[in-house]
């Protein structure tokens, strides 16, 4: 299993990632990500194409805790080629975690998290990897990672409707069922991106991103 995981990580790191946590200079981005584990919102401002800062809010349904944090996203390296682009980002956050799960009874404590995002794409193919290590004092510590591969069924011009078919694999070492596989369809046009999928655990995913 660890060999498989290592191969997956190495392969995806050598190719690419998706979520583009940094926008263009003076650009704002709104992201809403919803899947079987959590609902999250991220609003960030990019003073330059190298970094962004914003609010990150999450609600983890099963463990019944919320995170409210300031998140910093840094573009560590970008590789621009004639027909491809690859990026490596560092994402880090600092905030507080709130939980009223069972005996925790409305407990609040500081939380920090950090992780890398890597992506590679051409106009036809896409691959990404991202991970995150999160630590609070007592309530919750976890490590999660996910990877995606995608293909565009047709090549659309600038400003037209773009479609991608993607396969996402999530790995949560602390969970009973460690792997979740989700086929997704992504559609975007202009500044709006929408995607939806249905996971191997029977949950619907719904993500929306808007740049302005």
């Amino acid at each position: 299993m660890y060999k498989l995981l290592t191969i997956l990580i190495v392969c995806t790191l050598s190719i690419d990632v998706f979520s583009r946590p940094v926008s263009y200079p003076d650009g704002w981005t709104f992201m809403s990500m919803n899947d079987g584990f959590k609902n999250s919102t991220h609003i960030h401002y990019s003073p330059s194409a190298k970094y962004s800062i914003g609010y990150k809010g999450e609600y983890w349904r099963e463990d019944e805790f919320q995170i409210h944090a300031i998140q910093f996203n840094n573009l560590l390296k970008r590789w621009n080629k004639k027909h491809s682009q690859a990026n490596l980002y560092l994402r880090s956050g600092l905030g507080f975690l709130y939980s009223d799960y069972q005996a925790l009874n409305s407990k609040i404590e500081p939380v920090i998290f950090t992780g890398v995002v890597a992506d590679w794409e051409t106009r036809r193919y896409f691959a990404s990897y991202e991970n995150r290590f999160m630590k609070s004092i007592k309530i919750k510590n976890n490590f999660r990672q996910k990877s995606r591969v995608g293909i565009a069924p047709y090549i659309a011009g600038f400003g037209k409707l773009h479609a991608w078919l993607m396969l996402e694999v999530k790995h949560a070492p602390g969970d009973v069922e460690k792997f979740t596989v989700t086929p997704l369809i992504r559609l975007f046009k202009g500044p709006s991106l929408f995607e939806t999928g249905y996971s191997s655990k029977g949950f619907l995913s719904f993500n929306f991103v808007y740049r302005f």
């Binding site: 263009y24 621009n80 027909h83 491809s84 682009q85 106009r123």
Partner: peptide, 8 residues
């Protein structure tokens, strides 16, 4: 170079 993603 790098102009591959419409969204970006």
């Amino acid at each position: 170079f790098g102009l591959v993603c419409d969204f970006c």
